[in-house]
Simulated assay, not measured.
Amino acid sequence: MSLTTAQTQALGTDLRRRRDLLAAELRERLHTSGQDVPAGLRDYLGAGVDPSEAYEELADDLAWLGHETIVLRRLDAALRRLSIGGYGTCIYCGGDIPPERLQAMPAAESCVACQEAAERERRRHPA
């Protein structure tokens, strides 16, 4: 079942809202940290800082940044699919992605069957 125009518009609005919120959060976190330098340039090994704590803090910040960047890229990709008319279509099999799945995961690029197959394959051949 293809998306109706109303569903596509509502999902597009949600995608843009989520993308704008995430981009604003990334900008805020990278450019303001309550310190004199942007968080992205913070001196993790400043005077008197325990190196193991500094490493842990840096690792946490990098993990957060990596995850949020992936989410942002997925939202951007979904918005591109929306703009060219491919939104709601599985990138693997070309079938429809159910509206319920898109409401739960607006950046979903695959149908449930293809997603399950990809997850089974990843479990069989972990990286």
Results as ranks from 00 to 15, higher is better:
Arg120Glu: 13
Gln103Gly: 14
Asp60Glu: 12
Leu62Tyr: 11
Gly40Ala: 11
Gly46His: 11
Ser33Asn: 08
Ala63Pro: 00
Arg16Gly: 04
Leu11Phe: 13
Leu102Ala: 05
Thr69Gln: 09
Arg73Ser: 09
Glu57Val: 03
Arg74Lys: 14
Leu11Asn: 08
Gly95Ala: 08
Met1Gly: 12
Gly12Gln: 11
Ile97Asn: 06
Ser33Lys: 00
Leu72Met: 08
Arg101Ala: 04
Cys90Met: 06
Arg120His: 08
Trp64Lys: 08
Arg17Val: 09
Gly94His: 01
Glu56Lys: 07
Ala113Ile: 02
Asp43His: 09
His31Leu: 09
Arg123Lys: 11
Ile84Glu: 00
Arg122Cys: 05
Ala24Lys: 06
Gly85Val: 04
Leu62Gly: 10
Thr89Trp: 00
Leu11Pro: 14
Gln35Trp: 00
Ala63Thr: 15
Leu45Tyr: 12
Ile97Ala: 03
Arg80Phe: 10
Leu62Arg: 06
Cys93Gly: 08
Thr32Ser: 12
His125Pro: 03
Arg29His: 09
His125Glu: 07
Ile91Lys: 00
Leu21Asp: 13
Ala23Asn: 15
Val37Arg: 09
Thr89His: 03
Ser2Leu: 07
Leu30Gln: 10
Ser52Trp: 14
Pro38Ile: 04
Ile84Arg: 02
Leu82Lys: 07
Gln9Cys: 10
Arg101Trp: 05
Pro38Phe: 02
Arg19Asp: 03
Gly12Asn: 09
Asp96Arg: 04
Leu3Gly: 04
Leu45Trp: 11
Gly48Val: 08
Gln7Lys: 09
Asp20Ser: 12
Glu68Arg: 12
Gly85His: 10
Leu102Tyr: 05
Pro106Lys: 03
Glu28Cys: 10
Ala78Arg: 02
Val71Cys: 02
Thr89Phe: 04
Gly94Asp: 02
Thr69Gly: 10
Ala117His: 07
Ser110Val: 05
Gln9Asp: 14
Arg123Thr: 05
Gln115Lys: 10
Arg42Ala: 14
Glu28Ser: 15
Glu25Lys: 15
Ser2Trp: 04
Ala23Gln: 14
Pro126Asp: 01
Tyr87Gly: 03
Ala59Asn: 11
Glu100Ala: 15
Leu79Ile: 06
Ala10Ile: 08
Ile70His: 11
Ala118Trp: 09
Asp43Phe: 03
Asp60Tyr: 07
Arg19Phe: 10
Leu45Glu: 13
Gln35Met: 05
Ile97Leu: 06
Arg42Leu: 10
Arg73Met: 13
Ala108Val: 04
Leu30Tyr: 03
Ile84Val: 13
Gly88Gln: 02
Ala23Tyr: 10
Leu79Asp: 01
Pro99Lys: 01
Gln7Pro: 11
Asp60Ser: 07
Glu25Tyr: 00
Arg73His: 14
Thr69Ile: 04
Leu30Glu: 12
Cys90Gln: 03
Arg101Asp: 11
His67Gln: 08
Pro106Arg: 00
Gly48Glu: 08
Ser33Ile: 01
Leu30Trp: 01
Glu109Phe: 07
Glu121Met: 12
Gly34Cys: 01
Gln115Leu: 05
Cys90Ala: 02
Thr32Asn: 14
Ser83Asp: 06
Leu58Lys: 11
Tyr44Pro: 00
Ala104Lys: 05
Tyr92Trp: 07
Ser2Lys: 12
Leu45Gln: 11
Arg29Pro: 00
Gly85Asp: 02
Arg19Lys: 13
Leu72Glu: 07
